[in-house]
Design a protein around this nucleic acid. Structure first.
Lengths: 215, 215
DNA sequence: CGGATTGAGAGAGCACTGCTCTCTCAATCG
DNA sequence: CGATTGAGAGAGCAGTGCTCTCTCAATCCG
């Protein structure tokens, strides 16, 4: 029993050290050896806990999705009656989290690390994030996304969550758009045009609620 | 004279080899030594042409922006009278280019390579891409983006290109949204919901032309 | 209680990386 | 024709992910 506890503690300690590393140097630069040094282990010992760098990254991605989902859950959005306000609250919470944890954001939504392919086990974690937006924005139909082919594709999840198909497709696109906005801001692509991007982001949220028919 | 020619040829040869490397392994995995091997040089000789890996990446980014801008220019969009059709043509050309050159796309719009910061010299190259969308979509006002603070920020470029300020801000956001859509598709984030994403993308373009008041 | 088993950690080593340094030698310039 | 330049070679440094073998303490079981 004790053995298992110690193991779990070491596991957590490594993840924590990795998180610290990533916050400074970014995900692509994550070094197994540096983590080992930080937790006071020799490099090879790390591999007792994570068989490969990729495994460590996957664990971190899952964790980051969880952190983000939690930030959305505790934004107070779900206590709001007005759907437009609710969507805006979610959007702002997303942005605040992303700006506070840019490297975690990039870990999830950025270019995969060289050769890295997100494994299936990260999908439920990603869904935990999407669900907040779907529940808020996909209740009604959205004209531009009203196509039979598209509805058939998103049918399963729309059905499972009791949502409107065209609304569901629209929200999926709007999540991607939101991520695009934040990626651009973090990468500094707005410098010279709309940086700081606060006003642009607020206008963007207004546009989204209009598109989704929430206002 | 001959000397300078040979140097320029070697320069181009290295870039070409790097491009080939990137197409296979992605930007983060770009190896100076592998490039050297491919062009038949010893590793240290590469540094006669690019003082650092970062310099090589910058050169590649600029080149990629150029390729993308050229793909947009030769899409035939600017021959179209109908602005909505024109925007859709640009969007589709962007998507085709991105799907054909995913690693180049990620080089430009993805997570910066560990420790890499896009230097100022890539900005004009990025503008060459944006200009196509601005010229097409930013002629009229867009309600959600009509704020004085925002208009003041984008004022300079809107003025320089003789565009509507709120329309300009809207197009900037829509470019980011478009990039977000393509990033998600390339990263496989639509798998399980809307993959293949053709229909979602077409609906997305419809939504954009509506938002921008082009239809 | 005592021997067998397990597994965490150590350490050496392999093949790779970006980059620096010094050396050679052929092409160019004056 | 001699001096200068600069491309390329080669060795080397500090770092990487990962593998292998070894040790030794903690646990398990008869």
């Amino acid at each position: 029993m004790k053995r298992a506890e110690a193991r779990e503690q070491m596991h957590a300690q490594i993840l924590s050290a990795a998180r610290q590393e990533i916050a400074v140097h970014g995900g692509g630069a994550l070094s197994m050896r540096a983590i080992a040094r930080e937790v006071g282990l020799v490099s090879s010992a790390i591999y007792r806990y994570f068989p490969t760098r990729e495994a460590l990254l996957t664990a971190m991605i899952t964790e980051s999705y969880g952190n983000l989902a939690e930030a959305l859950a505790s934004s107070g959005a779900d206590r709001k009656r007005n759907l437009a306000r609710r969507w805006e609250t979610l959007g702002r919470a997303f942005r605040v989290w992303s700006m506070s944890n840019p490297h975690e954001f990039q870990l999830i939504y950025g270019t995969p690390i060289p050769g890295y392919v997100a494994p299936a086990e990260t999908i439920p974690a990603a869904e935990a994030v999407a669900v907040h937006f779907l529940a808020t924005g996909a209740q009604g139909p959205v004209g531009a996304f009203n196509s039979t082919a598209l509805s058939r594709q998103v049918g399963p999840i729309a059905g499972a969550l009791d949502l409107n198909p065209s609304g569901t497709a629209a929200v999926i696109a709007e999540i991607a758009a939101l991520v695009g906005m934040l990626t651009a801001e973090i990468a500094g692509h707005f410098v010279g045009t709309a940086d700081p991007a606060d006003h642009l982001f607020e206008a963007f949220l207004r546009r989204q609620t209009t598109t989704l028919g929430l206002s």
